[in-house]
Amino acid sequence: MHLVVGIYSVLIAAVAWHTLIEDYGLRTEMAGLLGIAQALALPLCLYWPMAGWWLSLAAAALTAVIVQPVVEETIWPAPCLAVHISVLALAGLKAGARVLAEMWLITAVAGVVLAVVLPGGRELAALADMTVLSAAVLVAVGALRGRSEALRRMARAELVSGQEQARRAVLEERTRIARELHDVVAHHMSVVAVQAEAAPYRVADPPQELMRSFATVRTSALEALTELHRILGLLRGEASAAESGPQPTLEHLGDLVDRVRQAGLDVTVNTIGDRRMLAAGVELSAYRIVQEALSNVLRHAPGATVRIEVVYRPVCLELHVTNGPPPVPPIPPPASAGAGHGLLGMRERTAMLGGQLSSGPRDDGGYAVVARLPFEESEDR
């Protein structure tokens, strides 16, 4: 825009200089000074809009006073009219509605003053060109500026809304994960309480200090278990009854695969390595990651071929869920309620365990999800 305004300023200075000489009979030096003064107002508006506007108005009024003996049928000379309208447009892009009205009013008052002061008895009708054109330009510029501001506000609102939705989705997914892991933690706390209660009876004549220690451990475990149940009441709220039941593990993977096969997916499952009894949190997260991956395939690639690999590494569990392209392009699915948040849920579960998740499209048009979950072998199974 700066380049365009610069070129336009040079052209308008040349036109004003030539017009003031040919049509108004000014000397070359005077015409050049007035043309340059008017043209300088244009680039000045890019940095200081009001300063550029005042310079244009002052140069136009000075030009009108100088050329008045030659032209008596108008107040504003033609070069001044063209430059000042252009200056109003540039300055108006950065001014508010009240300032636009003030600019138009001051321009009109300046014209009235010139009509009264200049000799020749000019009628106020001679102000029509500047008054009408400046009003039209300022109204158009104000409308454009208002539309631009409205679009910017909408863009900011959409950005904030998108960020809020993402934040809410993360919180909902974390709450859902916490609800699911409650039963796992509650189980371990119950084991601690039972072991602490039974331990003194496994030793003949246990010392009183040992009895008090086990009693303290049992009491603390029961109190922690009570607090867990209270937290669950806050987290569950309107949660479905299904979330209150036993949480699934990789042993239930076969049932999950059977259900998605009935929905039209060709799914194969391959287990690599020796099956291990893992910590309940790892088992639950692994099951949910596979479940979310299969749900995404159902939504975005119905009818595709899916391959699931469960790989038991020495220090981690790897899950590979890959699918080919769908037989026909799928219709974009509606947003589902209560079914997790897809990749977001997978990332949250993986991050909770300190693992890694990678996902992305494949060269054949399919999609792949790979999760690595570090594990510790369960001690209570």
Rank of each mutant, 00 (worst) to 15 (best):
K94R: 13
R167Q: 13
A178W: 08
L81R: 12
V370Y: 09
D129A: 15
V311T: 11
E180C: 05
V170W: 13
E209S: 11
A37I: 07
A335N: 03
R362H: 03
L127P: 10
A51N: 03
P119W: 05
R276K: 15
L20S: 01
E72R: 12
W54N: 03
H320W: 14
V5W: 12
S358T: 12
A64R: 10
F214T: 09
A140C: 03
A351W: 01
L124Q: 05
G345K: 01
V290I: 15
T107E: 00
A155L: 09
L317I: 09
S295Y: 02
I66G: 03
L278H: 09
R347F: 01
T219L: 11
I289Y: 04
G324C: 05
R276A: 15
S336R: 08
P302G: 04
P119H: 07
A16H: 08
S336I: 04
R156H: 10
S336N: 01
G281T: 14
P329R: 07
H188W: 06
I85Y: 00
D363L: 12
A157G: 04
R349P: 06
V282I: 13
E72C: 00
A279M: 15
Y24A: 03
G52H: 13
L357S: 10
E238K: 07
A91Y: 08
Q165G: 02
T271K: 07
A135Q: 00
A199Y: 09
D205C: 02
E123D: 12
R179S: 13
T268P: 00
T19M: 13
V311I: 14
V306R: 03
L353M: 13
L284E: 01
D205P: 00
V260Q: 11
L181S: 08
L353Q: 13
A371G: 09
A224M: 14
A91N: 05
G146M: 01
G345T: 11
A186C: 01
R362L: 13
G360L: 07
Q163L: 12
L250Q: 05
A241P: 04
A58V: 15
P43S: 08
A304H: 04
L210D: 09
G264K: 02
L253S: 08
D258Q: 11
A199D: 06
G146Y: 02
A97L: 13
I85E: 06
P77K: 04
R122I: 06
A115Q: 03
V170Y: 11
E309Q: 12
G121H: 02
C316W: 09
P246I: 02
V170T: 15
